[in-house]
Design a protein around this nucleic acid. Structure first.
Lengths: 199, 199, 199, 199
DNA sequence: TATGAATGAGTATTCATTCAT
DNA sequence: CATGAATGAATACTCATTCAT
């Protein structure tokens, strides 16, 4: 029952999950084409035919990882939107909180994030959906008087996604900064701007 | 010199340039692996051996396109940095101007942009360099008192690159907005923030 | 004994017979290579290892079906040869009767017929044996003065097998004509020929 | 320019033809599945990629051989039907002549015959077409008063094809008898029957 | 008797790359 | 300058077959 030297009759689900895990890492690190099925099964200490026992083909396992990312992220975003604004003293606190949640999620799923954000052909669609959600939120905040009425919420939402994407890869996945730090920085940047108002 | 029926004895440079042009389009549209050498030469109405007359291999032509993007972009940025601040009445005007220049450059080189920003393995290095330049500028502006002293210029520079990247692909290359519009939006967003200061 | 929900402890012979049945149908319909062991066991609602409990390998089950056909057919022919000629008023009646018997046998075993006549590598040997039997009969009839002395009985026997084979597949197995009709047609054709002797 | 040791730059058509030739032999001798692409190219002293230079895949070359057989045979039958009946003194002479022509054709194309008659999935369709042609001829002869009016021409045509098929494989391709002999035997058998009319 | 899980061995196919002309 | 013809090397995928239970 140990991980290594596991007997032939291991649970099929275990093998499947293992393949998914290894594949996620391989795809994230090497890209789709550079990742060979042989490498995936090797990483899982299984043989090639076993791979095809659980996945129709290489594309299928990749798509499953895409879906996994998409589904989890969406569930996450939906859930975090539930936080009633009342819980927070300030808008900034709420924005920061929500950003932190998302960034923490991405931080916890580095391989899937790389796949879903960079490698996937559906990355654009996924991001577009996120943008949509964010813009809805922005529109609401504008109407509520928290944000300026003259901003192009679509453009701001796109910008935010661009920022999240970039900082996730350069600051968070590299462990240079923690999600809460980055969340705070982003909220501050977008809410206040960088112009010096003193003096 | 005609497009079709170009005589056999056409200048080698012409063939070379043609190959680069076709390759840029193919790579940008289909990615590195999905782009076959056979497709490139077909698009240029040449044979496969001819391809190897001008490029060592597939990787080489891709790298040349990467370099092309990198070189041109750097030259561009360097040049646009030359604009003395005095020429502008306000910081915002200068920031807007510089952004517009960059965005216009990307807009004019859509295929190379896709290659240099998305596809290239060196994309990270290229972006890092851009970030560096931007951060230098930011640091200068901070010292000059134009920007807040408490911002993390590295983080802001990364954010700006993330924004540029995303808006270029979603708004500019799709022709939804013109460079100057986006430049203005970005400058406003980053300088002022979105918080509603009225009321 | 029910079709579905057959208890686990079903008789092994039942499973074996079921596998043979399904295999016969599959082989007949799709050929040897196109028939997968996985398809056979699926058709029998059994697992792959169970297949190997009853048959050494895929080839073995195919060979068993070949033998089945061969054995049954030979038994049949032998038995039908027992009919003493005296029982029939005319040669034609006897020939027709014998043909009908064979055709009826093939008609009743469509899958085995397809296997034994078309698919089997031993088909040639089987047919050769049938030819042999028929030629013996023909030789006897020639000596008895019923048939022309100048015919090449070997060639006629081969022709008859060719006719049987073809008409079985095109007229009988397709249910276009019944064995007795075809038997009669063949007997008439071979005994009388098609030349118009009137006028 | 010799057959062996032929330089790399041989005519493409030559290589293609060679592949077809080798493939025909291999398919005829070993069947579709047992014939490996590797064996075909080996027989042609070429490499595997070269195979795909001329044929989309293994199926494609097989289909081309099927077509070749079909086309040639049809052309042959059509042409031989042109022989005006007047050229022959007797019906039997004409029938014999036509049979000989067909058998000679099959004799000359043993590999294609095996492919087109046995291996091809389209064999049935091809034979059906031949049957059709023969039945047309028979109908004509019946109307002309040469053949009995009470025969089922469809059944006789099928029988003739069955005979041709079988005798081709057992007597002609094995070189036991020559086409003209077999043609004569078949004509005699079908026209006169085997019943002894003497005595 | 029966099977979930796994695999060895094989095969078609693709693609970048190179001769010889 | 240009190419028709050819290939080395690699990879995804399939299928009959077998453990261990």
């Amino acid at each position: 029952m140990g991980e290594r030297g596991r007997p032939k009759g291991a649970s099929g689900e275990e093998s499947r999950a293992l393949l998914l895990e290894v594949a996620a890492r391989e795809f994230a690190q090497n890209g789709y084409h550079e990742t060979k099925v042989s490498a995936i099964v090797k990483g899982a200490s299984l043989s090639q035919p076993t791979f095809y026992l659980y996945f129709k083909n290489k594309e299928a396992i990749f798509e499953e990882l895409e879906s996994l990312f998409h589904t989890r992220l969406m569930a996450f975003i939906k859930q975090s939107r539930l936080q009633p604004e009342l819980e927070f003293i300030t808008v900034k606190a709420r924005v920061t909180h929500n950003l932190k949640e998302i960034l923490a999620f991405l931080d916890k799923n580095p391989y899937l994030t790389r796949i879903g954000f960079y490698l996937s052909a559906k990355a654009d669609a996924i991001k577009a959906q996120i943008v949509e959600q964010i813009r809805d939120n922005l529109d609401y905040e504008v109407r509520a008087g928290y944000f300026r009425k003259d901003i192009d919420t679509s453009m701001v939402a796109e910008s935010l996604v661009g920022i999240i994407e970039r900082l996730t890869f350069t600051k968070i996945l590299t462990k240079q900064k923690r999600p809460e730090e980055i969340a705070n920085d982003i909220a501050d940047l977008l809410l206040e701007g960088i112009r010096n108002r003193e003096g």
